[in-house]
């Protein structure tokens, strides 16, 4: 009787220490995330404009979103195009680089670090400004094309048809975190599989599609969900590089809700927009989880 209780006593102590270690995070989570999130549900049913005392207006905000707001539809179109272009490209590129780095060459550690750098700095304002100078009017890319005799009236960022693509390319460039996850997964694929494939005379392509890809599906699944959620939240690029323009062709959903809140003094409406986005992301995640039985291969 005495022994287990002592054990439990230790366990309890362990737990307390754990929670105390966690407490700065929990504190921040509650105060900076959970509480504001709950309050924003309330705001989404009010006419809150940041400065007034909010009063309840029922579902008016939600009704306005779905019946009267063309910009909402435009920003959804932009965000969906962004996500569906970006996620496959970024994952493919990340996997490609991960496979290159999954070999034994000299100085691979350096390359791994270097390739990760864009992911650290990529979301920053400075890089966005560099990107703007790069692809903008009279920018480097335009000038280079001009050297080769390609004369264009509009820059890539100034053209409503190509501006989003520039932003997608910038997103693909930030492949580092997916790459690292792929790399660690690649290292966990048992060598015996490859050896037996070699004995059976498997070609490189077959090895890749029959062994590497199936073994990676849990990682791909994980990356996919992460990247889709992140993709829907794109803000910095479209805010800094193009400010949603030209002609709203890069107006991401989050930029639009930011504008509603802080530029147009429409906080209640903006909160409603935010919850619509949560619903959209939730739907996507659920769909992905439902389909995983069909393609995700878990070893045990």
């Amino acid at each position: 009787m005495a022994k287990p209780s002592k054990k439990q006593h230790y366990k309890l102590k362990d737990n307390i220490a754990g929670y105390l270690f966690l407490s700065p995070w929990i504190f921040g989570f509650l105060l900076m995330w959970l509480v504001p999130a709950i309050i924003s549900i309330y705001y989404s049913f009010t006419d809150f404009n940041l400065l007034n005392t909010p009063s309840m207006i029922g579902f008016s905000n939600y009704i306005r979103i779905f019946t009267q707001d063309d910009t909402f539809i435009q920003s959804l179109k932009v965000t969906f195009s962004y996500v569906f272009l970006l996620v496959p490209l970024r994952l493919a590129f990340a996997l490609f680089v991960a496979m290159l780095l999954n070999q034994n060459h000299k100085g691979l550690g350096l390359y791994r670090t270097l390739y990760y750098v864009p992911s650290i700095i990529g979301g920053s304002i400075a890089v966005s400004i560099v990107w703007k100078q790069f692809f903008g009017n009279k920018g480097v890319v335009m000038s280079l094309l001009g050297l080769f005799g390609v004369q264009q009236k509009m820059s890539f960022l100034g053209n409503p048809k190509t501006a989003l693509i520039v932003i997608v390319i910038m997103g693909v460039w930030q492949f580092g975190s997916s790459m690292l996850i792929f790399l660690s997964a690649l290292k966990q694929i048992p060598n015996s599989l490859y050896e037996s494939a070699m004995v059976d005379g498997g070609k490189p392509w077959q090895v890749f599609t029959r062994i590497t890809l199936p073994m990676l599906t849990p990682t791909i699944f994980f990356n996919l969900i992460l990247q889709i959620i992140n993709g829907f939240r794109v803000f910095t690029e479209s805010y800094v590089i193009t400010d949603g323009g030209p002609l709203d062709s890069t107006l991401s959903y989050v930029l639009y809700l930011y504008r509603r809140a802080f530029t147009y003094f429409d906080m209640g409406y903006s909160c409603a927009l935010a919850w619509v986005l949560v619903a959209i992301i939730a739907v996507f995640t659920v769909i992905l989880f439902k389909t995983q039985n069909n393609w995700v291969h878990y070893e045990n």
């Binding site: 102590k13 362990d14 220490a17 105390l20 407490s23 700065p24």
Partner: peptide
């Protein structure tokens, strides 16, 4: 070790509070 850990975590919690 546990005591140290406890103290450390307390310290962190306190610093965030203060």
């Amino acid at each position: 070790k546990r005591t140290i850990a406890l103290l450390l975590s307390m310290g962190m919690a306190m610093s965030s509070l203060t």
